[in-house]
Amino acid sequence: MSMSTRTGLSSAPRGLRAVWTAAHTPVAGVPRWATNLAYTVPFLVLPSGLWRIVTVLFGDGRNQDAGQLPSWLPVEAYVVLLSVASELLAFTAVGLIAAWGEVFPRWIPGLGGRRVPTSAAVIPAAFGTLALTAVWTTIGLATEIAGTTIQGDPLPAGYPGLGHGWSLVFFYATYAPLVLWGPALGVLTVAYWKRRRRNGP
C-alpha cells in the first residue's frame, strides 16, 4: 500500500470525527442539561424508526397496507424514507445547542458564515413543538386510551397496538419515547431563545 493511500485512509476517519464534533459540540453558555437533552432527542425517535424498518422488511406482510401511497412507491421504500426523515428531523434539536444553530455552515450558498436570526430557529422549532406534542403526546395518548382513531372510528385490525405477546411489548417500547419528543424540543427551544436573547441577536 502506497504512502498516499495510507494517508487517505487514515485521514478519512479524522475527517468524519471533525464533522461529528462540529455538529455536536455545544456553544459556550449551553448548560449541561440542555446538551444532554439535545443528544437524547434523536434516541427518542430511533427505536420507532428501527421498529418500522424491521417490521416492513422482515414481517409477515399483514400490516403492510399501502393505504394512500401512490402505486409507484413501494411500502418498504416509504417506511425507510419516513424513518430516515424522522431521524434527521429529530437531529435538528442538536442545532439548538450547537454552533450550526447560531451560524450558518459555510457550505450553504449565500448564507454560509452568517449569523442565524433567532426567529429563524425559534419559530420553526416552536411550530415543531406544537405539532409533535399534538400528534404524539396528545392525540397519540388519547387514541391509545380510547382505542379509536382520531376520527372516532375503531382501530383497524392490523393496528400494532392490538397485537399480543412480545410484538405488542416491542411496539409500545419503541413508540412510547415519541411522547417526549415534542416536550423535549419545547424545552430546548425556550433555552435557545433565552440564550440568544441574553447574548444578543
Rank of each mutant, 00 (worst) to 15 (best):
S83T: 07
V169T: 15
W181K: 01
G158C: 00
L96N: 13
G163A: 11
G161F: 04
A90G: 15
E144K: 09
V135A: 13
G163C: 06
L69Y: 05
V187Q: 03
V116D: 06
G147A: 07
R106C: 07
I139F: 12
L82W: 12
A126T: 15
P177I: 05
L141K: 07
T137I: 03
A77G: 05
Y175P: 00
L73E: 09
F170T: 14
L57E: 07
L73P: 12
L46W: 08
V169R: 09
R52V: 01
E87M: 13
R52L: 02
A77R: 03
Q68F: 10
R114F: 09
G182Q: 01
R106E: 14
L130T: 14
S167L: 04
G49I: 02
D153R: 12
L188H: 10
R114A: 14
I53Y: 03
G67W: 02
L130K: 05
A77V: 15
A93Y: 06
V56S: 06
G147S: 09
A77D: 03
P160S: 07
I139S: 08
D60L: 00
I53A: 01
W51G: 00
V103D: 01
G113A: 09
Y175L: 01
V79T: 14
A93H: 05
A120Q: 12
G140H: 06
T55I: 00
I53Q: 03
R114C: 10
R114I: 09
P177T: 08
A146M: 08
L188F: 09
G95W: 11
R52C: 00
G161P: 08
G49S: 08
D60R: 01
I53P: 08
L180G: 06
G128C: 10
L132G: 15
A125W: 07
E87T: 14
W136G: 04
R115K: 12
G158H: 13
I97Q: 07
A121I: 11
G113T: 12
L82Q: 14
T149Q: 06
G113I: 12
G113R: 09
F58I: 03
Y172N: 13
A134P: 01
W181V: 15
V75Q: 01
G59Y: 04
L88S: 10
V116L: 08
R52H: 06
Q68L: 10
I145C: 02
E144A: 13
L130Y: 12
A121C: 13
A184Y: 02
W51V: 02
W136H: 15
G128L: 08
S167G: 12
G95I: 06
G112Q: 11
P105M: 03
V79G: 00
A173W: 02
R106W: 13
W51D: 05
V56K: 00
A66K: 11
E76F: 04
V56P: 03
L50G: 04
T143N: 10
T143L: 10
